[in-house]
Nucleic acid binder design. Structure first.
Length: 786
DNA sequence: TTTAGCTCAATTTTT
DNA sequence: TTGAGCTAAA
């Protein structure tokens, strides 16, 4: 054995030792860094751990493990030092040691890790920072859009934009499109939302308006390409970009401007992409361009691709090895999250999909409990069942509320469940329904900041110019717009000059004072701390007074609190951001969704859509509304590809559960104001018998599709308490088993069990008509019968 | 210019 | 059923 071979063997031993916590597949994924790498990471397979370790490995060892011969002459003393450090862990991490180990070590500056969500990016940064004592500020672990944003900021002038450009979210974009449709006087067969969708698709195909016009063949709506064109003009005039533009212009800079490509490609030597199954064609193109100067590794799970409807093409992952013929694939199939019953069931469901790479998850977590299937009369019982299961788990098994997660296909389903949880005193949180940043008061205040930052942002400007009311109405704005078009001036410049336009007559005064307000704050920006500026602004424009006089006391309070929340958000940002400026703050808010603020601090059950649940895990999961037409959803029933996406969603939902999974379908469901019969979802039949039990018995056989029978009208709760976190007050009445009681809805029954909790008791009551229910004494409002 | 009442539409949404 | 956005009247 030559010195060099000994050295090689020894350092492999050392590296293996360092990564001994990982399983062999995970290690392979970490070590393999020579060629394009596709990591197919099943649900719960320790994907983030692998990414973090891989980044650490690249920083420390480069591609040491797989190179056959060290590229330098190994001396006897190198070997001795290595041997010594191997025996004595305390010398392991010294500089001398890592120098000897390194073959082609990467600097943090040369690495780029791309994710979809800010949350994932933040988690990555945090874990890298915690694991390696390294300066990771130069390591980019960012979302797709932030990566593009950083590049575009630097080269905005090449694209004809100012550096301080605004970013439009979905809402802003639709506002702009609506205003164009209105101007064109197009009969509203196509809503702004629909047109936005087409434009978005065009951008994802990297088509300019002209190119799009050539291929768009919907004659009925031939104006769409024109709207696309006008929309782009409008954005440019407002010095603004939408989300798709960020990627679009990112690609453009890298393709059309060699000097940009050169700088970028000289920098990034290793590009990692997370959730690759969610990339759309343009994003995937962007990734290829970014990775041109180095190596690439993508991580994803084709079985968890659930955003095809937004343009994601799971084909990107399926065809990775066509694009990179020398690509290597590693499958991570060991699951560390769920029990075998849950995994086997999920595997069996997803196996019904045809377009997939194919993977089978396994675990060493034991068989666990079977999945429980419940077939219930209506959405009313669905809520009740969930409430009673949660209470039971809380009392009997000492579980926390936050161990429970309720999943549904559409937000509209949350109401029934909320009602049931409220009436049982179970604290809960609903995620994703009304995002913080989408609330009107927040959008308004942010629009002010945006206009102060970029007064040409016409869409935001028109949002706030009369909010609070300043007597500047649509008529005036239309006049200004007409003048701007006539004189080929920017909207804001006409406002500024309002007094020199006789056409504006009386309105000119109001317009000028609005401009003066904006200008005053623009001048304050460089010197005034942002939180102070914000507070002054909030007071000066009289927004709070407007809230007070427009809304009732409750609404006013909550809206004002939201604005205060925004203020503390600003303070926080200024305190710890890299770029604590107004521009920096707006950039952040533009790219940060409210789900990022998902705080899991308090003990509350969690309600969300199945889409929202991706990446999360809970001890016990309820999948509700397991009915044909709801899940899989009605619009998906016609196409195999859509059904397959629903099936992937089912797979995602099932694999969120660690220990226990409940699946619920109802025989009749009230949704969107109409009662519709429920037929158990086709996915139910795809779950093996041995992994699932059916609760109840009669009429509950999941494998015989139940024909809906007309059900007696369910009693409905009319009085709904408003509190989400109900107060607990001790009961005066003490209940005990054997007692007869009357419930407002369920009627008369006998208490069969009473379990005392801190200030309340969980009662199991056998009702004569309604059957057995579990209720909290404080909330059940029972009457005792002697 | 504002607002009350009416119509219409309603999967999923990382940025 | 719920809500957002538009029209008609004040």
């Amino acid at each position: 054995m030559t010195l060099s071979e000994k050295f090689q063997a020894l350092r492999r031993q050392i590296i293996d030792e360092e990564y001994s916590d990982l399983n062999p597949r995970q290690r392979e994924a970490v070590y393999y860094s020579d060629a394009p790498l596709l990591i197919l990471a099943g649900a719960g397979s320790g994907k983030t751990t692998v990414i973090v370790n891989k980044i650490g490995y690249l920083l420390k060892y480069g591609n040491t493990y797989n190179c056959d011969e060290p590229s330098f002459d190994v001396t006897q003393s190198d070997l001795e030092y290595l041997e010594e450090s191997f025996r004595d862990p305390s010398i392991r991490l010294t500089n001398g040691y890592s120098f000897l180990m390194r073959e082609a070590r990467y600097s943090p500056y040369e690495l780029l890790a791309i994710t979809f969500t800010n949350k994932a990016a933040a988690e990555l940064r945090e874990r890298i920072g915690a694991k390696f004592n390294l300066d990771t500020t130069s390591l980019w672990a960012l979302t797709f859009h932030s990566v593009a944003m950083r590049i575009i900021r630097q080269y905005a002038h090449l694209l004809g934009f100012e550096k301080n450009f605004s970013v439009y979210d979905e809402n802003d974009s639709i506002r702009l499109i609506d205003s164009i449709l209105k101007r064109l006087n197009i009969n509203q067969q196509y809503t702004g939302k629909k047109v936005k969708h087409y434009i978005s698709q065009a951008k994802m195909s990297y088509q300019t308006p002209e190119e799009f016009a050539d291929v768009f063949d919907d004659r009925q709506n031939s104006h769409v390409p024109l709207v696309y064109d006008l929309y782009q003009q409008g954005l440019k005039e407002a010095n603004a970009m939408d989300f798709d533009d960020l990627i679009f212009y990112g690609v453009k800079l890298l393709e059309d401007f060699p000097e940009v490509a050169e700088r970028v490609n000289n920098r990034f030597k290793y590009v990692l992409v997370d959730e690759f199954q969610d990339t759309n064609d343009l994003q995937s193109r962007f990734v290829r361009l970014l990775a041109k100067g180095g190596k690439i590794c993508v991580v994803g799970d084709d079985d968890q691709s659930i955003y095809r409807f937004m343009g994601a093409s799971p084909d990107n992952i399926l065809s990775f090895d066509h694009i990179y013929p020398d690509a290597m694939t590693v499958r991570l199939e060991q699951n560390y999250r769920s029990t075998e019953n849950i995994l086997d069931a999920a595997n069996s469901v997803i196996a019904h999909n045809r377009s997939r790479k194919g993977k089978t998850l396994w675990s060493e977590n034991g068989t666990g409990e079977k999945i429980t299937y419940h077939n219930l009369p209506s959405q009313f019982e669905e809520g009740q069942l969930i409430a009673s299961k949660i209470l039971e788990g809380k009392v009997r098994q000492g579980k926390k509320y936050s161990d429970y997660c309720v999943l549904y296909r559409t937000h509209a389903q949350s109401n029934n469940i909320e009602t049931a949880l409220r009436s049982n005193g179970i604290p809960y949180r609903v995620f994703g329904s009304l995002a913080f940043y989408k609330r009107k008061e927040i959008q308004d205040m942010l629009a002010y900041l945006n206009v102060i930052n970029n007064p040409y942002d016409y869409t935001r400007l028109s949002r706030i110019i009369n909010e609070p009311k300043r007597g500047i109405g649509d008529t005036t704005l239309e006049k200004v717009l007409a003048l701007a078009v006539r004189d080929e001036r920017k909207f804001y410049d006409v406002l500024k000059d309002a007094k020199s336009y006789p056409e504006l007559s009386k309105a000119a005064e109001k317009l000028t004072s609005f401009v003066a307000l904006i200008e005053k704050y623009r001048e304050m920006v460089p010197t005034e701390p942002l939180p102070d500026l914000f507070e002054k602004l909030y007071g000066e424009i009289g927004y709070e007074n407007m809230l007070k006089s427009t809304y009732g006391l409750e609404d006013y309070k909550s809206k004002h609190e939201n604005v205060m929340e925004l203020l503390s958000n600003i303070k926080q940002f200024i305190a710890d951001a890299d770029d604590p400026t107004l521009g920096g703050y707006l950039e952040q808010t533009a790219l940060v969704s409210a789900t990022d603020t998902l705080d899991d601090g308090d003990d509350a059950a969690v309600l969300m859509t199945m889409h929202c649940a991706k990446g999360l895990e809970y001890d016990t999961v309820f999948i509700t509304g397991f009915e044909e037409g709801l899940f899989p959803s009605m619009p998906s029933l016609g196409s195999t590809a859509d059904i397959e996406e629903e099936r992937r969603l089912c797979y995602v939902a099932m694999t969120r559960a660690k220990k226990k999974l409940h699946i619920i379908s109802t025989r009749s469901r009230l949704l969107y104001g109409t009662v519709r019969p429920g037929i158990p979802s086709r996915f139910l039949e795809e779950i093996p018998h041995e992994n699932m039990e059916t609760a109840g018995g009669i009429n509950h056989d999941p494998y015989a599709r139940v024909q809906p029978k007309p059900q007696p009208r369910q009693p409905r709760i009319t009085q709904i308490p408003v509190t989400v976190m109900p107060e607990r007050h001790s009961t005066a009445v003490k209940y005990s088993a054997g007692q007869r009681v009357r419930h407002k809805i369920f009627g008369e029954g006998v208490i069969t069990e009473a379990v005392n909790m801190s200030s309340d008791s969980l009662l199991t009551i056998e009702f004569e008509k309604a059957g057995v229910k579990k209720l909290m004494a404080n909330f059940a409002k029972l009457e005792t019968i002697d």
